[in-house]
Design a protein around this nucleic acid. Sequence first.
DNA 1: TCCCGAAATTATCTTTTGTTAACGTTGCAA
DNA 2: TTGCAACGTTAACAAAAGATAATTTCGGGA
Lengths: 197, 197
Amino acid sequence: MKTINTLQKLLFDLSGVLPADTGPLFEMTTPVSLEANEAYIREGENSRRLAFIEQGIIRAYTIKENGDEATLLLRWEGQFIASHDTIINRQPSRFIYRALEPVKLLQIDYGVLEEILKTHPEYEPLRNFFLMKMLAESLKMLESFVTQSPEERYRELLSERFDLVNRVPDKYIASMLGITPVSLSRIRKRMYIKGKK
Amino acid sequence: MKTINTLQKLLFDLSGVLPADTGPLFEMTTPVSLEANEAYIREGENSRRLAFIEQGIIRAYTIKENGDEATLLLRWEGQFIASHDTIINRQPSRFIYRALEPVKLLQIDYGVLEEILKTHPEYEPLRNFFLMKMLAESLKMLESFVTQSPEERYRELLSERFDLVNRVPDKYIASMLGITPVSLSRIRKRMYIKGKK
DNA sequence: TCCCGAAATTATCTTTTGTTAACGTTGCAA
DNA sequence: TTGCAACGTTAACAAAAGATAATTTCGGGA
C-alpha cells in the first residue's frame, strides 16, 4: 500500500485532491507481480496497460527484421510504464515489455482510466503529469542521440544512473545506446585506459 | 482564419465542442508571422509558447559544446510546435526555434492555456491530443535510433517525407539523423551507385 | 547577367563501429 | 560438484563515420 500513498501524495501535490477522495481511482487499480524474465506485455497484444512500478526494472524492446532485439527504454521503481502503441496509436503492441528482475506494479487499464476521468476530472492533472514526464524523457534521449557520441551517452548514463547500469546486463545498455555489445565493451576498455593515465 | 477552422474541426472531432463554443480559447490566440531564418524562440528564453503551424517549417536546434549545431526536430504546417524546456521543465529554453521558410503561426501562451482549461475543461482533450502526438513522434524517432542505421533512417525519411527533405538543406537533415553532412553526402552517393546496378 | 557566399561533394586520413568467431567467466541447475 | 549456457571480452577484418580541407555546385542579390 506504500505505492498508493506515493501516488496519493503525487496527486495531492499536482491538483490538491485529498487522499480520502482518491477512492474512485484506486478502486480500479490492480496490483501485479512479475517474476524475473516474465513478459508483462507481449508483441501483438492489444491491452492498454498503464502501470506504476513499485519495485524492479522493466525493459521495452522490439525484434528487428534480422531477428535481433533492440531495447527502446528501461523503466524502474517510481516510474510509469505504458504500452504506448496500444494507448496512443490504438495498434497492437510492436514492443515487448519484460521484467528484468522480480517486479511489483500497480496497474490500471487506460480505457478504464479514461472513463474515470470523465466523471472525475479532478484526476486529470495526473494524466498530464504522466504524459509530460514521458515526453520530457523521450526528448532528452532524442537530444542525446543528435548531440552526443555513443561513448558520451554511456558516460552520461553512468554518471546519472550508475545504479541502473549495474543492475542491467550490458547488452541491453548497449542496445539502448544504439550500438552493439562488442562496441560497448570497447568503449569501456577505452575509458579504463584513459582513466589510468 | 483557415487555421482556426482546422483547429475547431479537430477540437470538435476530439471532444464534440461546437465551433461556436470555442470563443474563449481562440480569443487568446495570436497570429504570428516569421521571415525566413527568423528566430521564433531564442536560447535562454522563458516564454512558454505553443503554436500551430499554418505555413512553413520550423527547426529546433541546440548549440553543442564544440559550437556545432544539432537539429533535434523539424516541424511543418499542420503540426504543433512548443518550447518544451519552458513548458515541461519550466527552464529557460536550451533550444533555438528558427523558421527555415516564411512561417505563419497561431500562437498561445501555455500559462494562459492552463488558465483557460481551468474554467473550460471541455478543451482538455486538445491538450491531451497534442501531448500524445508529440510523444508518439518522439518515441518513433527514438525507435529509429535503436533499430536502424543512419542510411536506413535516411531512406525511411525519404520515403515518408520526401517533400520535407526537398525543402530542407541537407546539413539539417544530416544533423537530425545524428550524422555529419559529409556522411550524409556519402550515403546519398552509395544509394545512387546501388540504384544504378 | 555576373558574382559572391553558402551548401554539397569529394578526397585523404583517422577513429569508431559492425561482423564474426574464439575465448574466458560466471551463475544456475541438474 | 559438475556442466552448461549466457554474458562479456578480445581479436581480426570490413564497413562506416568523423575531421579537415579542397573543390564544385547552386541560388540569390547587386
